[in-house]
């Protein structure tokens, strides 16, 4: 009997991508979205999140480790594929390739983003207001703003397309019609969540965002 380790690894990779990593993505983009209602709303939500008991434990076991596993094992999966778009330029094959490309983009982005935000908080002990101000300064630059837009779209695409494959992997959507319906649902989700993510970035990058922050 040969080993079933890769089955276990793959299923764990699939599960962690949704719970908790996918869930965290939604929570994060929702929190960001509050910035469209002004810096104070965003800061209030961040302070509420920082007040959750056992936060460091939750961050390590429900965000950092699952994300690390999903990212590293995902890289291994991505680089194992022999992509053949030139032969099969079909829609699903494009999705297959894009899932891998957006996964790599998201992983690289997340490392940079964690360094710029979470680790700066850890290193300098910034308050929520200082964090908000620092981030608004980062995003006010056109280059970082564009990179953030690409990264948010990549992450949301990877999540939504990943949800579509998740349902197949776990045997929920078996037939073609079920898969078409789930595709429609996740396309809709992609549009909605992308809107949340991008409108937050736009709000942060506006010149008067920092002024509002200073006034309050």
């Amino acid at each position: 009997m040969s080993s079933q380790r890769s089955f276990f690894n793959r299923r764990l990779h699939s599960l962690l991508g949704v719970i908790p990593v996918g869930f965290f993505l939604l929570e994060h983009l929702y929190t960001n979205y509050l910035a469209t209602k002004g810096p104070q709303e965003f800061i209030k939500q961040v302070e509420w999140l920082w007040g959750i008991p056992f936060l460091p434990l939750l961050e390590v076991f429900f965000i950092f480790l699952p994300l690390l596993y999903h990212g590293v094992y995902g890289l291994y999966i991505a680089f194992q594929a022999k992509n053949n778009l030139e032969r099969f330029g079909t829609f699903r094959n494009w999705m297959f390739v894009l899932q891998r490309i957006t996964g790599v983009i998201t992983l690289v982005f997340v490392i940079w983003h964690v360094w710029e935000t979470r680790l700066q908080v850890a290193l300098h002990g910034s308050t929520a207001t200082e964090l908000t101000r620092d981030f608004a300064q980062i995003i006010s630059n056109n280059v970082t703003f564009t990179l953030y837009i690409i990264a948010v779209l990549s992450a949301v695409f990877h999540f939504c397309n990943g949800m579509w494959t998740f349902l197949i992997t776990w045997g929920v959507t078996v037939g073609q019609r079920a898969q078409r319906v789930s595709f429609a649902i996740f396309t809709f989700l992609f549009v909605v969540v992308s809107y949340l993510g991008i409108s937050a970035l736009v709000a942060f990058s506006k010149a008067d965002f920092l002024q509002h922050l200073a006034l309050k």
Binding site: M1, S2, S3, Q4, R5, S6, F7, R10, R11, I77, A81, N84, F88, T90, R92, N93, M95, F96, Q99, W164, T165, I168, T169, G171, T173, V174, G175, Q176, Q179
Partner: peptide
């Protein structure tokens, strides 16, 4: 489900497009 098994499928669904016999391979995988 041992190593190299079912789990290696990445849902590109090329198989069902390519199969000359029109076998519902993706439904079998599901």
């Amino acid at each position: 489900i041992s190593d190299g098994g079912l789990q290696e499928c990445g849902n590109s669904q090329n198989c069902v497009r390519a199969c000359p016999k029109g076998i519902p391979l993706t439904k079998a995988i599901g």
